[in-house]
């Protein structure tokens, strides 16, 4: 990859940050910063959490763990389960980013910035680009998106105490509604709709029964139910 070509495609990717999904994600990170402030996390902790996970569900699970004093092992388990979806997403996108000049560490680096917004964006646009520009284009968009939102989360955390309660309620609400809608929009098979429905009911239910490991049971039972009901539906 020539120096010139890399920076050209890199900035092409950066240019796409002025888009509606990128703006919604930014507002979600404002909301996340407010949530983390309420859990007692400092701006630097919030920024490290946002950048090193670069996946809002994982970050929200960690904040929830801090809020509810969830044990370490249960947090790890919940985060592992909440991030499983990143593996098939990564496997689907990586082949598009490859060219004769990309090295393995390039791809592993790029994979660190795969999350819902960047993935949906890249799967749509990257296949139309010439191969030599794809990696730089993706990094330009996804890496810059991560850097900006890390700063947004830190600033939101820092300033959240001075926000009027109505504004902070609106921002805290942004995270669940953004996730519910974008997850439903990204769902392609019936199993996922069933899983969303089951999860919405079982999450609060298991919180009342077993608050420490509620998400685990919710995921295992709700997900298996959704999977089986679809399997059963196919056979009859």
């Amino acid at each position: 990859m020539g120096e010139k070509a890399f920076s050209y495609w890199y900035w092409q990717g950066v240019r796409h940050l002025l888009s509606i999904p990128a703006c919604i994600l930014m507002m979600s990170f404002v909301g996340f910063g407010g949530l983390s402030a309420e859990a007692g996390l400092t701006p630097s902790q919030t920024m490290v959490l946002a950048f090193t996970t670069w996946a809002l569900p994982s970050a929200v699970v960690v904040v929830g763990a801090v809020l509810n004093d969830v044990p370490f092992y249960a947090t790890v388990f919940a985060v592992v389960l909440a991030s499983v979806r990143l593996m098939p997403m990564t496997m689907a996108l990586i082949p598009f980013l490859k060219s004769s000049q990309t090295k393995t560490w390039h791809l592993v680096f790029a994979s660190n910035f795969i999350a819902i917004t960047a993935w949906v964006f890249a799967m749509r646009l990257v296949p139309e680009l010439p191969r030599e520009g794809r990696f730089a284009f993706f990094i330009g968009f996804a890496f810059t998106l991560a850097i900006i939102n890390t700063c947004v989360a830190g600033l939101a955390n820092y300033f959240s105490a001075s926000l009027p309660p109505v504004a902070s309620a609106a921002l805290v609400f942004l995270t669940p509604i953004y996730f519910l809608l974008s997850m439903t929009a990204a769902a392609r098979i019936k199993t996922e709709y069933w899983a969303i429905g089951a999860g919405l009911v079982l999450g609060p239910a298991f919180h009342l029964i077993t608050p420490e490991t509620d998400l685990l049971w919710c995921g295992l039972l709700g997900g298996s139910f959704a999977y089986l009901i679809n399997l059963f539906g196919k056979r009859t």
């Binding site: 899983a195 969303i196 089951a198 999860g199």
Partner: peptide, 11 residues
Amino acid sequence: KAIATALVAGL
């Protein structure tokens, strides 16, 4: 994927 989806919905 179904387990992960249900888990995030529960969250």
